[in-house]
Amino acid sequence: MSAGVRKLGWSLLAWALVLLVATPLLWMLSTSFKPENEVFAVPVTLLPEEWTVEYYVLLLTETSFPRYFANSAIVATLTTLVVIALGTLGAYSLVRFRYRGREAIASAVLLSYLLPSVVLIVPLYLMMVKLGLANSLASLVIAYTSFALPYALWLLRSFMAAVPEDLESAAMIDGATRMGAFLDVTLPQALPGIISTALFTFILAWNEYLLALVLVNADEVRPLTTGVMTMLVSGFNIEWSLLMAASVMMSVPLIVILAFLQSYLVRGFGAGAMKG
């Protein structure tokens, strides 16, 4: 009986939290379908009285939104690919090979992650100018990579360290090359970690604002975050429904990816293949 009450209490608490988090999102969704006159109407309507997709059409046809969206998608995808490729191999090296300064490198990586990003913006910008990369998607990919890589290395290192070395040794004796052993044995074991890291990196690149603001200021290369802001401030009055429609569209890729990868994230490790 009291167990049942306790369970009910916890459920209520959980739902309250979910509601707290979800309300603004649901509000955003609802607003994006409201016609302009209804947005500020009193009494407030929870659901649009009159549904309209006018702003979505407007967004996709009349604004630079599709351009921004494509830019963000390119930058986030490339960043994720680069970070995962470098991070996986780097973490593997930190875990498996013995060389001078290995621990120093690992600590340096952590340290660089702890540095606030604000202090790096100006040097990064100057570097991009020197490299002739200012105002390009490449500059964003490089900048985001430099921010995500330390964290990715740190995360992947612990995942790789959890893969027993004997597994690889066994694969090498069984006729695999080191790279083959890595691909056949270590990678599948570290996959949940790699997926989490990829997700983290993608979200970071997708949502990043500050660096994008400094590094690019041409419409062709603006990502969603700064792009939508530009759309917002360039008009005389803020088109809230339009902004909400943009926000919904911005969130969709993340939600889709999360829904798709969730099963991987919760699956966790295949435990118990080793003695002890």
Partner: peptide
């Protein structure tokens, strides 16, 4: 000579079975 080219087989103390 790398392990794969030595033509040996080994049973590990930890078994080292491929989990997946």
């Amino acid at each position: 000579v790398p392990p794969g080219a030595r033509d040996i087989a080994m049973v590990f103390q930890s078994y080292a079975l491929y989990p997946q």
